[in-house]
Computed example of a mutant assay.
Amino acid sequence: MTFHDQVIAILPKLRVQALSLTRNRAAAEDLVQDAVCNALSAQASFIPGTNFSAWMHRILRNRFISDLRKRRETTDIDDVPAANFSSSATHEDNLALKDLSLALSRLPADQREALVMVVMQGMSYEALAEATDCAVGTAKSRVFRARRQLEAWMTGDLPSNDKLRIKVKALRDAIDARQRKGESYEDLLID
């Protein structure tokens, strides 16, 4: 497989990673384009036989970090792309997906990125560690913490910290009250 064929083959995975980093579709597409341009200009530095996927993911991540340092801002994603779902979801499924999307957006960026790369893209912990320039144990820990936090948010488990538990209960009560009135509650979820 030629270098260009490998680049084309990895584009969908780069788009997913970029979306998990930027949380904005247009910014994700720009990030992928910039990363591919960087990879093409650095083609001579790629060593055939090494992990091309990890190399490309690292280029994309480094480009994101570089852009972030320049801008010092990111924007939120409002929803998960409908194309990711194979069939029409029921109303209940749509609510669950919206809750999951919201919970994913609230995860720390490093945990969200690790979870997306391992769970959605099927990347190994070793490849994740290489792509994000961290130890394998750190990569595993990020995925574990992200999964644990998502599970707690999605199942409604309250934190053990009393002050935090009181805040979470008050937030849930406020959300429930607004939902009963048919009002939006997303402003309550912004830090």
Rank of each mutant, 00 (worst) to 15 (best):
S141C: 10
A44H: 15
V80L: 12
D173C: 01
D67M: 02
K98M: 11
E29F: 03
V119I: 12
I47T: 14
K163D: 13
A103R: 04
V116D: 07
S53E: 14
R178I: 00
D99A: 13
E130G: 01
R180P: 01
S45M: 14
E183V: 00
R112C: 12
V16R: 15
D78M: 05
F85M: 09
K169T: 06
L164R: 13
R25M: 09
E183C: 01
N38M: 11
D191P: 15
A89W: 10
R61F: 12
L21F: 12
L158R: 02
D133L: 13
V118T: 12
L14T: 12
S86Y: 04
I47E: 15
V32T: 11
W153M: 15
P48W: 08
V143L: 06
G122V: 07
R112M: 09
N51C: 08
R15K: 13
E29W: 04
E113F: 05
A152H: 04
F64S: 01
D34S: 08
D157T: 05
A26Q: 02
E73N: 08
K169P: 00
S53D: 12
H91E: 13
N24W: 03
M1A: 15
L11D: 13
K13T: 14
A129D: 05
N24C: 04
R165T: 06
W153I: 12
N51Q: 11
D173S: 00
G137M: 08
R23Y: 00
D157R: 10
V118E: 03
T22Q: 12
G182A: 02
S124H: 06
L31A: 04
A44W: 15
S87F: 10
Q121K: 10
F64K: 01
L189M: 00
Q33S: 12
P12N: 07
H4D: 15
V32N: 08
I10G: 04
R178G: 01
L31K: 02
V16C: 10
N51W: 09
A129E: 01
V7G: 14
E92T: 02
N62G: 08
N38I: 10
N62H: 05
T22D: 06
H4P: 07
K13I: 07
F46I: 13
P48D: 08
D34L: 06
A28P: 07
A9M: 11
E73C: 13
L150Y: 10
V7E: 09
L60V: 03
G156H: 09
D67P: 02
M56F: 05
N38E: 13
F85C: 05
F85Q: 07
A27E: 05
S88V: 07
T2V: 14
D176Y: 00
E130I: 04
R58N: 05
G156D: 03
L97S: 02
G182E: 09
E73Q: 11
M117N: 06
L128R: 03
L188Y: 03
D78H: 02
P48A: 09
F64W: 00
R23W: 02
A129K: 02
L14W: 12
Q149E: 15
H4W: 10
I59H: 05
L40H: 11
K163I: 09
M117G: 04
